[in-house]
Design a protein around this nucleic acid. Structure first.
Length: 586
DNA sequence: GCCGTTTTCGGCCCGACTGTTTTCAGTCG
């Protein structure tokens, strides 16, 4: 039996929730289950593969007991101990846990009111029946809102996960001697934040051999469909993968057609009709009054395909029919930012002790993060720890800690010649719009990142007020992950973005494009909108460990989808211009 | 149940927000 990471995480969470409401098991044991679930959920590799290779001990958060349980789960499909813990709890309890805002206690309360399905819950909430039975009005509203969010949430995977799986398949395809070129297709090629299926194309003069090669790929659970030019398979991890193989003379048309987007292609076909062409995945035909008058033109590449229509080829990331076709016709496509333009990363969390080592959110040392930055070829790097646990401290304590940390960084810089190390913090924009760190401490930093980390479901006005307030602080340089969305988990916060962008541009504050797989925030559409106001951006990884510093590519993709060029992204600039923007003395 | 430059015991993040429980519980990150 195949068990996906998501399913595995859910099994562990369910067990933890069962412990919680039964009152058996201590709090830390429950937390251990949840911690393991978190790690599994965020792994880009399949945990079941680790198990098969006897490498479960490489997964952090899995100790002897949990490894034993997982072993039982993967080999027998069930864990006796887990079933024991969940005994006597109705199924609805576990379904309710999937609703945002509903935890074990609330789910238990609702289950005990006799609700037996999510559908019934929806109905009884709307009828006010549950409120009559003692559920508070506000809670009822909150659950309804949560249900709404769930229904709008698709079952799509995050781009970086899809990207990692796709790379393996692309590498495998390239090994086939009959393959000339391979590409990802669809939303994957356009680098959309979430991906449905994995689609690929290949060019070859012997298509049948390529589809046969594809269907022999390791990790296939079953073949749904295998034709001469096309094959669809389901992988053991539950993903569906499609392959289309085309001959070289029309490969550009095939690639273009299946890259989409749908709206881009529709617009293109209308345009082509006006010019006497008919477009399809098989090529370009000459038509007159609906009659085909000419045979297919050669379209070996996408460039040739677009050239036949008198236009440049837009980069895949912006093929969404939002003006790229017009720009391509006028030969005025943007010169989009590239990964290799990036010269530094300013949003990194280290394990630098905050009050005590266990408070630090990051897992790796500043030294290791700086080392990685050098390997990436960066010219500068900034450490921006969260001063957690200081809210209840005196400003004096906080200032002392900042001074201590500053000395530590200065000391490190004095031993490091080849890269500039900058001293920053990521602080909270509190509910009332004030900052979580006193100005006196902020004034000593090279830069300050401010972000909303609580109360994301506030009203449009509240969120806007908080953002505007931070943008008016003389010490804030960057607003981190401005919409605070978590893909597949939490929607973007609402704000009057025009107001936010106007003020950001006026006060010369940067908006972050956060590369974290679950964030990809600022969203691409808002990047485009902000750019029109003259806002500048910084692409950061928000890495909490060294390996996450490789996520920069995904932030760059968001920027590209938002039509950003290197002049819009300050961390592509030369050090002189960059330092000038931040008012840092070189 | 996990984990280890406080390593085989004894710790384990904690602050913000929400709702309603005037002092705290549940949820989230």
């Amino acid at each position: 039996m195949e068990i996906s990471n998501a399913k595995l995480a859910k099994i562990l969470r369910n067990t933890a929730a069962a412990y919680t409401i039964k009152g058996t098991g201590n709090l830390f044991q429950i937390r251990a289950y949840e911690n393991a679930a978190d790690n599994i959920e965020h792994s880009t590799a399949e945990i079941q593969d680790f198990w098969q290779e006897g490498k479960l001990n490489q997964v952090s958060g899995l100790g002897e007991s949990l490894r034993g349980y997982l072993d039982e789960l993967f080999s027998k499909g069930e864990v006796r101990h887990f079933e024991e813990v969940k005994k006597g709890i109705p199924k609805i309890f576990f379904d309710l846990l999937d609703i945002p805002g509903v935890g074990p206690k609330t789910a238990d309360k609702i289950a005990k009111m006799g609700v037996s399905s999510v559908e019934q819950l929806k109905k009884q909430l709307k009828d006010g029946e549950l409120v009559k039975m003692g559920l508070s009005d506000k809670l009822a509203q909150k659950i309804l809102q949560g249900l709404q969010e769930v229904s709008q949430r698709g079952n799509r995977m995050l781009l970086p996960y899809a990207f990692a799986q796709a790379e393996k398949i692309l590498n495998y395809l390239q090994k086939c001697p009959d393959v000339l070129q391979v590409h990802p297709l669809g939303s994957l090629r356009r680098m959309v934040a979430t991906i449905g299926d994995l689609d690929f194309s290949a060019s070859s003069n012997s298509p049948k051999k390529v589809t046969e090669h594809f269907c022999r790929m390791p990790g296939i659970a079953r073949i749904i469909d295998q034709g001469e030019n096309q094959a669809t398979v389901v992988l053991k991890n539950g993903l569906q993968a499609d392959l289309l193989v085309g001959k070289t003379d029309a490969y550009g048309a095939l690639l273009q057609h299946f890259t989409g987007s749908k709206s881009h292609n529709i617009k293109l076909r209308i345009l082509a009709n006006g010019k006497g062409y008919s477009l399809s995945e098989f090529g370009v035909k000459k038509v007159s009054r609906g009659q085909v008058t000419g045979y297919s033109q050669k379209t070996e590449t996408e460039e040739e395909f677009y050239r036949l229509l008198g236009m440049d080829a837009p980069p895949p990331e912006i093929r969404e029919d939002t003006g790229e076709i017009e720009a391509a016709l006028e030969h005025k496509l943007p010169d989009l930012v590239e990964l290799y333009d990036i010269k530094g990363d300013l949003h990194l969390h280290s394990n630098f002790p905050i009050k005590s080592p266990s408070h630090a959110p990051g897992v790796d040392s500043m030294e290791d993060m700086v080392k990685k930055a050098k390997e990436l070829g960066y010219r500068w790097v900034g450490i921006s720890d969260h001063p957690l646990g200081f809210t209840t401290s005196t400003p004096k304590e906080m200032i002392k800690w900042v001074q201590m940390r500053t000395k530590f960084i200065q000391n490190m810089q004095s031993r490091t010649k080849s890269i500039r190390v900058l001293n920053g913090l990521e602080i909270d924009i509190l509910g009332n719009g004030t900052l979580s760190v006193p100005d006196e401490a902020l004034a000593t930093l090279d830069y300050c990142i401010a972000g909303i980390h609580s109360g994301h479901r506030g009203s449009k006005d509240e969120i806007t007020k908080r953002l505007l307030s931070a943008l008016n602080s003389p010490h804030v340089d960057i607003i981190s992950h401005p919409t605070n969305r978590l893909l597949n988990e939490r929607d973007s916060s609402d704000a009057l973005w025009d107001e936010v962008f106007k003020l950001a541009a006026k006060n010369k504050k940067l908006l972050e494009i956060n590369s974290h797989p679950m964030r990809l925030d600022l969203r691409d559409d808002l990047v485009r909108m902000a750019k029109k106001y003259g806002v500048k951006f910084i692409i950061n990884t928000d890495a909490h460990m060294v390996s996450q510093m490789d996520n920069m590519l995904f932030g760059v993709s968001v920027a590209r989808r938002g039509w950003a060029e290197s002049k819009d992204i300050v961390n592509t600039w030369d050090w002189t211009d960059f330092a000038k923007w931040f008012n840092i003395k070189s």
